[in-house]
Design a protein around this nucleic acid. Sequence first.
DNA 1: GACTTTTATTGCACCGTGAAAGCAAACTAT
DNA 2: ATAGTTTGCTTTCACGGTGCAATAAAAGTC
Lengths: 387, 387
Amino acid sequence: MRENTRGTVLAALLRSRPASRKQLAEATGISAATVSRTVDNLIAEGLVHEGPAIVEERRGRRQVLLDIATDDRVVVGLDLGASRTRCVVADMTASPLATMDVATPTDLTAPELAHWVADLARTATAHRWPHVRAVAIGLPGAVGHDRTISNAPNLPQVEHPGFVTACEEALGRPLAIDNDANAALLGEQRFGAAAGLASAAMVTLGAGLGVGLAVNGRILQGRRGLVGEFGQLPTGPHGARLETMVTGPAIVERAAEFGLELDGPAALFSLHGNAAADRVRARFDQALLMALASVSVACDPDVIVIGGGIAKSLRDALPTYQRRLRETLHVAPHLAYTVLGDFAGASGAVVAALHLAYADLGVEPASLAHLPAAGTLTASSLAAVSH
Amino acid sequence: MRENTRGTVLAALLRSRPASRKQLAEATGISAATVSRTVDNLIAEGLVHEGPAIVEERRGRRQVLLDIATDDRVVVGLDLGASRTRCVVADMTASPLATMDVATPTDLTAPELAHWVADLARTATAHRWPHVRAVAIGLPGAVGHDRTISNAPNLPQVEHPGFVTACEEALGRPLAIDNDANAALLGEQRFGAAAGLASAAMVTLGAGLGVGLAVNGRILQGRRGLVGEFGQLPTGPHGARLETMVTGPAIVERAAEFGLELDGPAALFSLHGNAAADRVRARFDQALLMALASVSVACDPDVIVIGGGIAKSLRDALPTYQRRLRETLHVAPHLAYTVLGDFAGASGAVVAALHLAYADLGVEPASLAHLPAAGTLTASSLAAVSH
DNA sequence: GACTTTTATTGCACCGTGAAAGCAAACTAT
DNA sequence: ATAGTTTGCTTTCACGGTGCAATAAAAGTC
């Protein structure tokens, strides 16, 4: 006797779709009779549609393909960044319907920012707004279990106690909030460089150092949202914090100390044969290695995905970091470059929103941890719907 | 409709025992009728016994107390250390029945050590050996998901590929293997300084640096057992590893570099007003702070329990470390001194063995994560059965 | 000894499930 | 064409676990 046949069947369909009743019965281990009845209910509720029959060179009645209904249910994923905000609208199969990429306004109060976010979601979904079932937001701050936000120096408004509830009220939908690195990890884990890996980590290098950790398909959060705040580690000389050596502003600052005027952090990595640049880079490398090693021993991920603005400059050097990490620890996780790039965070937020939406439909959390598994959301499918 | 009434009832009884049928019905939310029927089955199987009725100054039929049967099922927890091996025999309620504390033989091959361990378990349980349902061993090495053991410099025999299977065969019982710090954490989390906290960490300072992390009541392990290998972090000057600054042998070595001949690591902490000692201590403090901060951002635990041989010397300084940790991170977990002391590892192994035994009886893993919750295994109950 | 109160057990109906039988829809052989 | 075969879906039926409600049991109180 099963606890939640309905959720199990829905999860199986979401995992490999489209699928016939027979395939679902085999995938779930539930009897064909029960699957058939359950599918009838799901169709009656409008959650699932019958598709065309499979045409085979075989005898017998043909399998009728089933798929998740995509007409009247939509979710929104938002990546609220310090400089830019990205938004992805997707249906219940995680197929993107629209994307947006706009500058984040800098001079808004917390309530104003909440309304700006809600308006952005409404604009992005357009006529589909009434069909939005859930929204998720990733933002550059530590999010606790009680949804209090702290340590968001690059977007201080979100730390305001009323920000989250203001968003929720302005949206009028179930809302999930998480750290942007966690959101990016969720995206990479479902559709990107960590696809199908239950244990993975994400390191984003940009205005700040963001880290997300996932174990057994679940993102670690912690009561106070302290998980992933590796930037605070006192690892440098005289107890200097890690983020004073690997973030964009810090790189420019360190270079200036060595008499090097950089246009931006990326400039450091295009200088070759410059002694001062080499010394700044050596310090950066040492600090990054420390961060990667810490992440490795924190959760033993199968892969560490590197993303964020500075990641572009490091892409070619990844094998070198990989080698040094392996020298430091005897066994080391694989290093991979982000696949979803700038939209990793928003894509992960889509996944979080889908989790909310499916939880409402009776899919239990254990199944959600691996959903959606199909690669419907990809860099190219995103590009196809962007304007 | 429930998936596993039997396991739920058993878990509720284990969590607060003894209890009447009525109390179990209230605790689980299952109807009194079903609880009554389930209890009948458990009694028929010999897993549960009826006890005396509660005598109350009230009208009505008296509640009959039920308790876990303790006669014919026992488990063994072992802490296989580099220098000493500790063993705790306990019944299904986690009440200790016997303890042992013997020197670990130093010159055995892997198969010999496996047999020595099995003999120790047999000796400790004595006439109850036939009733042993499960055994768990904590050892000073990294244990992967496939039970391969690596990074065990202080007890290299256990790295031998055949060691675990040799143990299992010699014992003839279901066997759980884990890192000793993980085992100690499991002990502290059920019966010690982290009792009742779903999220906790353990740092053991001794011949090596051991770290265990727990999130949502589950110990993090990782596929390769890399979780907790914080000693490998390249955090010191010139990339020196963390464990070259906080472990017992390392402290003596560092002191010698400063011209200080120590009898043992503890001697460092009893020297006052000695300039060289102060400098060695400052380095130790810095490294320990780094370890504590890394642990904090790795899983955001509610408490970090400090144990191991060197912990005794740090007990009075814990508030100082607590203050420095809070200065480093804005919010920080609480630091606590081990409650179970030398027997934390073996006690945790008892918990792991109980999990195996109860899983055999149909209690699902989700319930196990919080079991046993009652404080039956304490320092004094251990002392009462030691010889 | 009748009444009240509380706990445990039993009777009964409900519901979800799987096995097996039945039905539907395709191809194949005569 | 038409019967036969194969395969997928649906229906029938019996089973088992569950909760509600009635009943029994065990205590105190009048």
